[in-house]
């Protein structure tokens, strides 16, 4: 009797995590392992003009060498960083601004406004980009696309970043609003009794207390920036400004499904995943140390 109870107690946690583990194995580890295998292979054709027989051969580190020497990939990383430099401060900054403004006691229609700012987050990225595409194109633009070139060589970075920011601000604002709720009301009252203005409270009390939440939002946004794909890929057919290899994920997609070079795409994916893990680890360490200080 005691033995079954112990067994039940030890088995239960494993049973509870089982679905998550199975999903993780099936859809992350197994495909990841397959990509790793593919990344050490190459496709070779033989048999006549059209090479009607295809074989996978072991290629050692050839794919990795080719990836590291791929200037287009490095330019793509540069473009991704440029967009990120715009997106990360703009998203976190605007989210913080909106959260603080909505936290001021005398603000009216706070709930409606919060919902309105959050709403874009509910619009899928591709749909949002299609919509923004119509807003940007000179022939269909209601926002001055016939005077401003939203697809100029410089402007396109802001046009892409704008869509990301528009979609992400609401979510981050909700995170910060929730964090603000957890600030004890005594703190607010004490500040008010001491004659602190709303602005002073925001700068001297709320922002320092929000630090861990701001750090988390920053981390989310960094990760989102690394995965930039939907916005540029959907805008691509609209103009000459975005190439099929504009950011690393588009390059991987293009290699795998347009150029049919799965092996090269797999090697790029493996390296990119490793780099992304490193960046997020460093970012989270940085964030934790800032949050603690």
């Amino acid at each position: 009797m005691a033995a079954t109870r112990r067994l039940r107690r030890t088995a239960l946690p494993y049973l509870l995590v089982l679905p998550a583990v199975v999903l993780f194995l099936l859809f992350v580890l197994v495909p990841g392992g397959y990509a790793l295998v593919l990344s050490f292979q190459a496709r070779k054709v033989s048999g006549g003009l059209l090479g009607s027989s295809t074989t996978q051969v072991f290629a050692g580190l050839d794919n990795y060498r080719a990836v590291l020497a791929d200037t287009e990939l490095w330019s793509g990383i540069g473009r991704m960083v440029l967009v990120g430099v715009i997106v990360i401060p703009a998203t976190v900054g605007l989210a913080l601004l909106f959260a603080l403004l909505l936290d001021v006691p005398r603000v009216r229609l706070a709930k409606v406004t919060r919902l309105a700012i959050f709403l874009p987050y509910a619009v899928p990225g591709v749909i949002a980009t299609l919509m923004w595409g119509f807003l940007y194109l000179p022939a269909t633009s209601p926002i001055g696309g016939d005077h401003v070139d939203f697809f100029s060589s410089v402007g396109v970075f802001f046009s892409v970043a704008n869509i990301s920011v528009w979609g992400a601000v609401g979510f981050n604002m909700i995170v910060l609003c929730t964090a603000l709720r957890s600030v004890p009301t005594e703190v607010h009252e004490a500040a008010r009794i001491d004659g602190c203005t709303e602005l002073g409270m925001a700068l001297r009390i709320k922002i320092p207390l929000l630090r861990p939440a701001i750090a988390m939002c920053a981390l989310f946004t960094v990760l989102g920036s690394l995965q930039l794909f939907n916005e540029p890929n959907t805008l691509k057919p609209l103009s000459n400004a975005i190439s099929s290899t504009w950011v690393p994920l588009m390059k991987i997609y293009d290699d795998a499904f347009v150029d049919s070079d799965l092996n090269h795409a797999a090697a790029t994916s493996v390296l990119f995943t490793a780099a992304a893990l490193l960046v997020s680890w460093v970012a989270s360490r940085f964030v934790q140390s800032r949050a603690a200080s």
Binding site: G133, L137, L238, S239, N240
Partner: peptide
């Protein structure tokens, strides 16, 4: 200079 088969082109 704009690409074909886009909303811009359809309008043009």
């Amino acid at each position: 200079k704009n690409p074909s088969f886009s909303p811009q082109w359809n309008k043009q």
